[in-house]
Nucleic acid binder design. Structure first.
Length: 786
DNA sequence: AAGATCAAGCTTTTT
DNA sequence: GCTTGATCTT
């Protein structure tokens, strides 16, 4: 049902009955589950409220209970509550939890969702006010960049010096600040070789003709509509009587304006956030929004949730001590009544590989149960890195020792090439005027329609002022193209017509239709004929895609949702260690957390500091804070003296954040030998042994002096000797049929030998040609320290 | 038009 | 070092 119809029906009625109903004791039993601060946050229903919720303080619980309480007290009906989150996952979780508390699905909560999904809903309703039709398409970053590239070329700009990616960044930034092309301040005019504003305007124009929007537009258009049409805004202010916002510290200016506009009037707005966990400044998030809240909403109640239910006192102490170095915080003191627990462990390693090896062993030790701790399932352990390229060292190592892991936040399902291609076909079937989709698939699979043919179609279409499909149709009917290309193009045009026809008539089951589109077009065959090792996986993904269609009534509905729901949560029950970035870890918790790579330049990231100075450093520090506070039971921070970056060996100092950790909460495992006499950690293979070797490094010669000494110490070269030995052995000793082991590809059989190269058929990874020194005989796999 | 070779890059990424 | 895109080659 349309939410607006519900509104209309509701407005015709009256508000009385619910609010008049007395609340029995049984109905508010949920309030007894809350601590005093949570309870205050739940019961302060009217007027502006800022809920400062530290890590692990039961924020979601307070938020969902508040929604239930709004309903129970009769303040609002499900449809009158606007609850905004940043991610679909958070929205889903909120919906589930509210539903669970109510004892039935949270029906009618039509305004619970992400900023973007709610904006889509608003924008479809009022598209014409933004110069769009309500069936506009939503472009993702990839489409956006391709479009910008065209405009850059059309503007006679050297795309190499001025890449589309950079322009996309500038435009995104402006949109995040709610600047339309005319509102970009003069001070920004020099951006992109003085051409950015002009290109931005051209881009917006192009989007309008394509009847398309990008992610930034979703918010921007809604803000612009609200500003230009007070009557429309007023409607929503009346309808949406209570507003809740999750992760408020991550809102950007456009989102802030969006909220302000809707909230002004009743001012029933409850923002939940934690200024110490603001880690998306680089994407336009304004910590200022949360710091300014009390000024923006006079009379706001500020409620602090400070009782932590997640971590031990040592972990909290370390995190609090670290974040205390940041200026301009709203300030919170997290506390817990949990038993003291383990200190945060700190360990230095010779290089990144050793760090990965040590962590691998430590994971296994924790899994068995060590240090007097209960055994911890790998499911409840995570390795949190600053940058995704750090993940590889762990993947390599874990593959070697056969430790199951999962990487969170890799390329997402709907961003994969084959999925995007398939989607382009579906888009064309639904809306044959979708030029971007047409461009994408016209020569995929190969139809002999290369650059020249495509330019011809473009030209014909542009001259006639028609979509590309129509242009193609004319090219065919007028025979402007030769031989193979012509026949293929004719076939494609006919096929698109047929698909569109079927979509329109809606007679055919949309799942069958989708399968047929992929088969008819030759796209399935394209991957079946592809001999690369990725091909089977891609076909698998296509099957997944078709399966995902089952949840929707038709192709249109599917496309609508997919544009916004880009997450890729595959349930997998096997017990695995998680590897992810610190950013991806926000909101999650693990019993054991490893924080590798705490080296100056890597973390805090040099680039962050160069580009954003002190505020960049503070954001990095918040990232560190987020990392530590993910840990429930045990947290291990590590750094490596040497690390290979972009193929070059580099030595680095331990992160300055390490100095900022309060010593009382830290246990230093690093043996003194590490800094004194070169590689000294050879015997230190597990945490238990390391602990025996742990000296009072913090106090003894002075931790800082140690660092200084490390700085002046000559750069040590990585050990090579053992690898060289293996190399010589390996190169000469293999024969056809030998079983070998490779650290990334696993076990395999030698199929051929050419000089120093082996042709190996791996059990899991398929056939690879590689240099002999990268593999060892299978029976030696366990002894070799890679 | 399609494969092959080479240079230039290179944080984080909810939607 | 390794991937990605642009140019070169057939």
């Amino acid at each position: 049902m349309n939410d607006f119809d519900e509104f209309d029906a509701f407005e015709a009625g009256a508000h009385q009955s619910l609010s008049a109903r007395a609340l029995g004791a049984r109905q508010v039993a949920y309030l007894d589950d809350l601590n005093p601060a949570q309870r205050a946050a739940v019961e302060a229903l009217d007027g502006p409220v800022l809920m400062l919720a530290g890590a692990g303080t039961g924020k979601t619980k307070a938020l969902t209970t508040r929604i239930v309480h709004l309903l129970n007290t009769g303040r609002a009906r499900p449809n009158e509550i606007l609850a905004v989150t940043f991610t679909n996952k958070a929205a889903r979780e909120m919906k589930d939890r509210v539903g669970r508390m109510l004892g039935h699905a949270a029906e009618g909560m039509g305004w619970m969702g992400t900023f973007h999904s709610i904006s889509v809903k608003l924008l479809r309703r009022h598209a014409e006010l933004a110069g769009l039709r309500s069936n506009f398409t939503i472009l993702d970053t990839d489409d956006q960049i391709r479009l910008l590239k065209q405009l850059i070329l059309a503007g006679n700009i050297d795309e190499k010096r001025w890449p589309a990616r950079q322009l996309a960044g500038i435009i995104d930034n402006w949109k995040n600040r709610a600047w339309t092309p005319t509102r970009v301040p003069a001070s920004e005019a020099s951006a992109f070789n003085n051409r950015a504003v002009e290109l931005y305007a051209a881009y917006q124009e192009r989007l309008r003709t394509l009847n398309a929007v990008d992610f930034g537009d979703l918010l921007l258009h809604v803000v612009t509509i609200f500003q230009a049409h007070p009557d429309v805004l007023e409607q929503y202010q009346r309808w949406l009587r209570y507003i809740l916002v999750d992760e408020y510290q991550d809102t950007n200016v456009a989102q802030y304006m969006w909220l302000r506009l809707l909230a002004q009037g009743h001012c029933n707005i409850c923002c939940v956030g934690d200024d110490d966990q603001s880690i998306y400044g680089w994407r336009g998030a304004e910590v200022g929004n949360i710091l300014r809240f009390e000024k923006d909403f006079p009379g706001a109640q500020v409620i602090r949730l400070e009782q932590n239910y997640r971590s031990t006192p040592h972990i909290l102490g370390a995190a609090s001590g670290l974040i205390a170095s940041n200026k301009g915080r709203l300030g919170k003191t997290l506390w817990t009544d949990a038993p003291e627990g383990e200190r945060v462990r700190l360990i230095g390693h010779w290089d990144g590989e050793e760090e990965a090896r040590w962590i691998g062993e430590e994971v296994e030790a924790l899994q068995r149960g060590t240090r007097g701790l209960d055994p911890i399932s790998p499911d409840h352990m995570a390795i949190l890195v600053r940058a995704s390229h750090q993940m590889r060292a762990f993947e390599d190592r874990f593959l070697t020792i056969g430790l199951p892991y999962r990487v969170i936040g890799g390329p997402r399902f709907y961003e994969r090439l084959e999925i995007r291609d398939a989607m382009a076909y579906f888009r064309l079937a639904v809306g044959p005027t979708d030029d971007l989709a047409f461009e994408r698939i016209v020569n995929t699979p190969k139809r002999g329609l290369g650059d020249k043919a495509q330019q011809l179609i473009q030209r014909v279409a542009r001259e006639a002022g028609v979509p590309l499909l129509e242009g193609a149709r004319r090219v065919v009917s007028e025979g402007l193209l030769g031989g193979k290309g012509l026949a293929e193009l004719r076939r494609l045009v006919t096929q698109i017509d047929q698909w569109h026809d079927r979509v329109r008539r809606g007679e055919q089951n949309h799942i069958e239709l989708a399968e047929q589109i992929l088969d008819d077009s030759g796209y399935t065959a394209h991957w079946q004929n592809d001999k690369t090792p990725e091909a089977p996986g891609r076909l698998e993904n296509l099957k997944e895609l078709v399966k995902a269609l089952e949840q929707f009534e038709n192709l249109q509905g599917f496309l609508e949702h997919v544009a916004l729901i880009m997450d890729n949560e595959t349930e997998d029950t096997a017990e695995k260690v998680s590897i992810m970035t610190l950013h991806a870890a926000k909101g999650l918790e693990f019993q054991a957390v490893f924080l590798p790579g705490w080296e100056d330049g890597l973390f805090p990231s040099q680039r962050s500091m160069d580009e954003s100075g002190l505020s960049g450093l503070e954001e990095e520090r918040r990232l560190a804070y987020v990392g530590i506070t993910r840990a429930e039971v045990i947290c291990t921070i590590s750094f490596a003296s040497n690390r290979r970056v972009y193929g070059q060996w580099q030595s680095a100092l331990p992160s300055r954040f390490i100095d900022e950790l309060p010593e009382d909460h830290v246990e230093v495992l690093t043996p003194p030998g590490l800094y004194g006499g070169g590689y000294g950690a050879a015997g230190m293979t597990s945490g238990v042994e390391a602990r025996a070797a742990s000296a009072n490094v913090y106090n003894s010669p002075g931790w800082k002096r140690l660092q200084e000494r490390a700085a002046t110490r000559p750069v040590a070269q990585p050990r090579e000797s053992r690898n060289v030995v293996i190399d010589l052995e390996a190169a000469s000793s293999f024969t056809l049929g030998d079983r070998v082991f490779h650290q990334k590809f696993g076990y395999g059989t030698v199929q051929g030998i050419e000089g120093d190269k082996l042709d190996v058929s791996f059990d899991k990874a398929g056939s690879k040609k590689l240099v002999a020194r990268f593999v060892v005989a299978a029976d030696q796999a366990d002894d070799v320290p890679f």
